[in-house]
Amino acid sequence: MFDWPTFVFSLPLLGKALLITLQTSLLGNAFGFVIAILISSMQLAKMPLLRRLGGSYIFIFRGVPLLVQLLVIYYLAPMLGLPNLSPMVAAVLALSLCSGAYIAEILRGGLMAIPPGQREAAHLLGMSRPAILLRIELPQAVQSTLPSLVNELVLLIKASALVSVVGLADLTRVAQNLAASDYLFFQHYLVLAGIYCLINIPLTMFGRRLERHLQRSLA
């Protein structure tokens, strides 16, 4: 039923693929977070133009399937006469843009929950807008939305399975290749499922820990 030698043989390949998966999804999440800070604060800005820009961003990148975004981004550059994006760059870019939209909405909720008086106090003490955002508002928004943010990270790791369409040898693609070579479909996909599942364990633990750490200050 389960062919152990094949499993052992596949491990180094899967290990390498795991790195690709982690690299794309973690980088995507990190850049996505930066994008999200920008977009969410644009949406909460006073200027109508900024609000509309932020809103449009979310409309587009939340509205288009990630798979389609990946393909469009990958094939867009040559259309514009630019050099091809490497699969890695295209994958990280697509994951960043997409997760940026989702994280922006999460952060916006967290930012809106902060009593406006806190901003007022900071403003009166002479703090600049970016300083207020980064020092006063963002830490609280991250803290209050941490479960959703961890959730988003987990989702993104799984969504990164899609990057194989631009030719990246991530976990899913390598498992597919292995299965195609020896027809042990069930075994390879079972191992694949197990690996995705295992990735979550340290993440969830890290999230819990961070939550507890942050809560200690506020309790």
């Binding site: 009593p115 008086g117 806190q118 007022e120 106090a121 009166l124 006063i136 830490p139």
Partner: peptide
């Protein structure tokens, strides 16, 4: 300025 709601930064 000092506000009714204190407006301290809780973090």
């Amino acid at each position: 300025i000092v506000f009714q709601q204190f407006n301290l930064w809780p973090h």
